[in-house]
Simulated scan of single mutants.
Amino acid sequence: MMLADAAGHAGQDRTAGAAAIAAGIDDMYEAFLAGDRPRFDGHLHPEVTTWETHLPGPLRTRSQLDSYRDQRDATGQRPRLAVLAARDKHIDVWGEFGVARYVLVAQAHAQGPPELTRVTDVLRRVGDRWLIVHHHAELLREPEPAP
């Protein structure tokens, strides 16, 4: 393979990887809205770390995340949302790893005020799937200005 061909192939892999990551992120939040936890969890690596503004400290594995969600759900505190969507996605792919940065828009009511969260997900390709190995989300106090 010539060098130019290798560079073109790598660019196609990055583009395809970024598209797959974007589709996976969209599917994950659609699964949340549908209450489909197995489908949502299908996007998470078993050793995912989860750091979010509202969580009780960093959760360092999926089992810790599951324990937190089980306790939350048992008390009826699972968020009920009309909108949960990733916007303004920026995705980079390097071989078997990718990073997605986006703003997560959450609305309890379709016409209600949005809550904006800045998110960074680090992903690893496992077989033909991209799984989140680190999720970091920070609630924005004020809407971010448009670029």
Rank of each mutant, 00 (worst) to 15 (best):
M1G: 15
L3A: 12
A4H: 12
D5N: 11
A7I: 15
A10N: 09
A10P: 01
A10Q: 10
G11V: 06
D13Q: 14
A18I: 03
A19E: 15
A23T: 06
A23G: 14
I25Q: 12
I25S: 02
I25R: 02
D26A: 15
D27W: 04
D27S: 13
M28D: 02
M28C: 08
E30V: 12
A31C: 03
F32S: 00
L33M: 01
A34N: 07
R37K: 14
F40R: 03
D41I: 08
L44M: 13
E47H: 10
E47Y: 06
E52P: 00
E52R: 09
T53V: 02
L55M: 13
G57F: 06
P58E: 15
P58T: 14
R60G: 07
R62K: 15
S63F: 06
S63N: 06
Q64V: 00
Q64N: 01
D66I: 02
Y68C: 04
T75G: 10
P79I: 03
P79C: 03
R80P: 05
A82G: 09
V83P: 05
R87T: 15
I91F: 08
V93F: 08
G95I: 05
E96G: 07
E96A: 14
F97P: 00
V99R: 02
R101F: 03
Y102I: 00
Y102D: 00
V103T: 14
V103I: 13
V105D: 12
A106G: 00
Q107V: 02
Q107I: 00
Q107C: 06
H109F: 11
H109D: 13
A110C: 01
G112I: 03
P113N: 04
P114M: 09
E115M: 13
T117I: 14
T117P: 03
T117L: 07
R118S: 15
D121F: 05
D121C: 01
V122Y: 10
V126D: 14
V126P: 01
V133N: 08
V133P: 07
H134M: 11
H135K: 04
H135E: 03
A137H: 00
E138S: 15
L139F: 06
R141D: 09
P145V: 04
P147L: 10
